[in-house]
Every structure is written in C-alpha cells, then in structure tokens.
C-alpha cells in the first residue's frame, strides 16, 4: 500500500472541493468497513482519502411526518436500529441495518457507505429501494437528488461523478396500513455476503385484506440491485393472500440475471429470489396489518 493523504473536512463545500481536486484519485470515507479493507487489499490506489464523519449534516438523523426520515450518509447502522422512531416507523430499515456485519461493524458501517460501495449484493440497498428512498447528492455543480434505484450502475459503480458526495438518504413517511421487510440468504447466520436478498413494502387498504400498492427489490442476482416492478405492480388491487404472494415471488424471478460464483449458482439464486420475495412479502403484510 502506497502512502496517501487523509483529510477530514467539516463542511459539505470543503468536502466537495477536496474530492473534486483529486478526481478519481480520491475516495470518500465514512465507516470505512469497505473502503479500508479494499485499500489494504490493493483493490485501488488513491492519493486522498476524504473522511466524511466530521461534517455535521452527514451525521444527522431526523424524522417528521411531513418530510419523512432523513439519514446522513455517515450515520452508523447502530444509531439507525437503536432509534425508537425508526424501529416504529421503518422496521424494514432496521432489518437491513442490523444485517450488516457483526456488532463491531454496525458501530461503524453506514447506509451511505453501503450504497456508495454499490455492490450487487449490498446488504441494505434493496431495503432502501423498497422503502422508496431518495439520494441527496452534493457536487461541484450544486445539489441533486435521485431515487435509490437509479443510483447503482454496475458492480462497484454508481452515478456519482468526480467531486460528488452522497449527503444523505430520505425516506417518505410510511403510509397508513403499510409495512416493509428485508431478508437475505447467507449460508452462515452472520458475517456473510448474500447469495440473494429481497425487500418488500406493501400498502394495504383499510380492510387490511387487499393490497393497494407494493414495491419489491432484489439483490445479488444482477449487476446492480433491481426493482422487481412487474412483480410488485401485479400485486396492486389483489388480495393480501398466499396466492398473490406466490405469484409475486414467481414474477420477481424474472428480473434475476445472476452469475455462477463461489457464493452460489444461477439456478440457486433465481430460486432464492422467489423464496425470499415471498417471505419478505409475508412479513411486510403481517407488519402492515399490525400483527
């Protein structure tokens, strides 16, 4: 490993300037649970590491019914899943934040970092997508915002241009009679990379018997985490029944275009997308019913 510069700006403008100066020779550091491991492993060679943890805005977490939940890009997972409001309003997000690594990792790792790492199997990304999250991005040309599902562009690649940083994520307030859940499949019970993962959110009608709308996202089965739009749209207006869940699970498989690797085979991954989508839907519906 070559020596490189470590800087810790305290404002977004300064961070953008420092990132822009070094272009693709700079990396942003939040929890560091991916970037430090990759640096040491020789995955890339950089001139500058820009620590985002000293920027107040990136450490903020706030909720209001009007604006929903805002999570700064440097907020560690433990703050998210230990927050009473998040536990009550966004149990699907708790599922995801609690799945990253083990306890020590959760003390450092961030949703923002997980998203910017843009791994196809990113542990939280499908959950962020299913919850309808949006990304707040700052760069040399000012601020922009886009849905999480448009953020990743390939394995380890995303829409951030040189000099751009992720400021935070926003999630709309949960609608009445809604629920979400996130699941991944790993051979071990912790500290593992998903063979497949799936997140679902549903809105039920007032009878809580029928689905008004749904969002489904799956991961580790394509170059980026994918929205299973057709599967989700097919649930609109359907009964919240095992039959609907079964159909959605089968439909979700269509977006999977996985590879064979040491973690799993194509057949296994496509099969698991179906299993996990169904299980996530069952939990999401159960949560929407207040069970």
């Amino acid at each position: 490993m070559r020596d490189f510069e470590y800087v810790a700006p305290t404002t977004i403008d300064e961070a953008v300037r420092l990132m822009a100066e070094s272009g693709n020779r700079a990396k942003a550091l939040a929890g560091g649970t991916d970037v430090i491991v990759q640096l040491r492993g020789g995955r890339f060679d950089i001139d500058r590491l820009v620590d985002m943890k000293k920027i107040p805005e990136l450490n903020e977490m706030s909720y209001s019914e009007a604006d929903g939940l805002t999570v700064g890009a440097a907020v560690p997972c433990h703050r998210i899943y230990e927050d009473a409001t998040v536990q009550e309003q966004y149990p699907g997000l708790v599922d995801a934040a609690f799945l990253i690594g083990g306890i020590q990792i959760q003390g450092r790792a961030t949703l923002g970092g997980n998203l910017c790492n843009s791994s196809p199997s990113g542990d939280t990304i499908p959950a962020l997508m299913a919850l309808g999250g949006t990304c707040d991005i700052a760069g040399p040309n000012g601020r922009r915002s886009l849905p999480v599902e448009d953020f990743c562009t390939g394995p380890g690649r995303n829409v951030l241009q040189d000099g751009e940083i992720l400021v935070g994520l926003n999630f709309p307030s949960p609608k009445a009679n809604s629920g979400a859940a996130f699941l991944r499949f790993i051979p071990r019970n912790e500290m593992d990379i998903a063979i497949a993962n799936a997140a679902a959110s549903v809105v039920l009608d007032d009878s809580k018997e029928n689905i008004v709308s749904a969002r489904i996202a799956v991961g580790a089965v394509a170059p980026t985490p994918m929205m299973a739009t057709a599967a989700a749209d097919g649930l609109a207006g359907k009964a919240a029944s095992e039959e609907s869940i079964e159909a959605a699970g089968e439909a979700a498989k269509a977006v999977a275009s996985p590879i064979n690797d040491m973690r799993g085979t194509v057949t296994q991954r496509v099969h698991l997308v179906g299993v996990l989508t169904k299980r996530a839907l069952r939990t999401a519906i159960s949560r929407a019913k207040g069970e």
């Binding site: 083990g102 051979p187 071990r188 019970n189 912790e190 500290m191 990379i193 690797d261 040491m262 973690r263």
Partner: peptide, 16 residues
C-alpha cells in the same frame, strides 16, 4: 483461490 478471506471462507461463527 476465489475465497481467500475469512468472509468467504465461511468458518462457523458462534451464531451457527
């Protein structure tokens, strides 16, 4: 060897 790390060489953890 594709899985030359403790992440991918899946030894049991206490939760397993």
């Amino acid at each position: 060897m594709a899985n030359s790390s403790l992440l991918d060489y899946r030894m049991p953890t206490t939760l397993d």
